[in-house]
């Protein structure tokens, strides 16, 4: 075991209040991460204080997911929030520096919630064909 990791379930409504509490205790925002679990998205907000790792977690439906922004509390959250809105289509309300979907220049909209395309890996070229 490398380290203990505390995972706390929160609600999207209480997220801002809980995050503010973390900031008051001196925690650092480590990351915001979204995981697609079938038709749901799992959101993780990770914090760290002197290598004590705390993680807030809640779930949202895949389509029409909305979360309040925490960038008013931790300003640095704007990068993560733009990332989740560009790659996962999560609507973030009140982001202080909203790139409106241009933070990542991807060929496809919200690529990380799309189903895997069928076998894009090309088969090895057969000898002789160019």
């Amino acid at each position: 075991m490398i380290e203990e990791q505390t995972i706390i379930a929160v609600m999207p409504e209480t997220l801002a209040a809980e995050t503010r509490k973390m900031k008051e205790q001196g925690y650092r925002l480590v990351q915001i991460c979204v995981t697609r679990l079938g038709e749901e998205l799992q959101l993780d907000y990770s914090f760290d204080l002197n290598r004590r790792f705390v993680n807030f977690r809640f779930r949202l439906p895949k389509t029409g997911a909305r979360v309040p922004s925490v960038s008013g509390i931790y300003w640095c959250a704007f990068t993560y929030e733009n990332e989740i809105s560009d790659l996962f289509g999560v609507q973030v309300d009140g982001n202080v520096l909203d790139f409106k979907g241009t933070f990542y220049k991807t060929a496809m909209k919200h690529p990380f919630i799309q189903d895997a395309a069928p076998a894009p890996v090309p088969a090895p070229a057969k000898p002789g064909d160019q």
Binding site: K126, P127, Q130
Partner: peptide
């Protein structure tokens, strides 16, 4: 170095 994508057999 090479200029073509060949399979070596």
């Amino acid at each position: 170095p090479t200029v073509t994508k060949d399979m070596e057999t």
